[in-house]
Amino acid sequence: MTDGVPLERRGVAIRDTYAEAFGMRATRLVITAASPRWARIGADALTGFATSVIGCKVEAGVEAELGPSETPDGRPGVSVLLFAFDAAGLGQRVVERVGQTLLTCATAACFDGLPGGTERAPMGEGLRFFGDGFQSSKVIDGRRFWRVPVMEGEFLVEASVGVQRAIGGGNFLILAVDAAAALAAAEAAVDAMRRVRGVILPFPGGVVRSGSKVGARRYKKMVASTNDAYCPSLRGRVGVTSALPDGVHSTLEIVVNGLDRAAIEASLRAGIDAACRPGVVEISAGNYGGKLGKHLFPLHALFAEAAR
């Protein structure tokens, strides 16, 4: 799991620990519109309030902006990824979100971005009823698309989406001398990680300031509560075992979900490398001792593999 060999990049120590992630189901939607602006509006609306399955039932984010040559209908587009614990739940979220945010979005259309997915979840199949019997469908190259008449013209939506096994909860922590340094490093990391296809960073701006621990000390009903070991204001408090080295006064976390292990590793590697900059003391990662998820990402191994 760990190698015990010190590792640093540009003077920033990378702790000999690992990120712990867990299995999820994911799908990719390709949203197109009359212009990049409207495709992005649709994508942002669809992926809003989707930071954590704990409170949002789904985790979602923008994967990439697509040129006309990369979309099924030759219009500008955005690909988004959605993650949930199972295919059935993911399908429900897809229907809810596409119905509320893309059916309503001017000029938007929505396509399956994983046509080879081993499992299928409904999309247009669940939304076509908005057409009140006036809807119709077309089968093109073996894929069914529903045409739902709307006041603007037609909403075109693929009947179903592919679902595949995926990984959620890849992460690393940026331990910095102050909040400004932590934020600058996080922003640099996010910019680098978003260039990797097959991943999303579901939290606001790709950054989490409120990393959590499982359950709570004081409140039984809480399934997650503040990660006191990394809260600088709790250092020295009775009952708190701080994980922060001396000189660390702010911590930010980057969480990454990916379609496969290779995408998450590439993203973590790019993000950690970009985050190693002045003002950052150490890079660490969140884990639960290997008891929560079966996907472990040792930080040192990320760079050992890159060196090979």
Partner: peptide
Amino acid sequence: ACRYRPGYVDLLFAS
């Protein structure tokens, strides 16, 4: 009915 460009037409033509 109307004058427009249905979205499926572009999918069909691309195919």
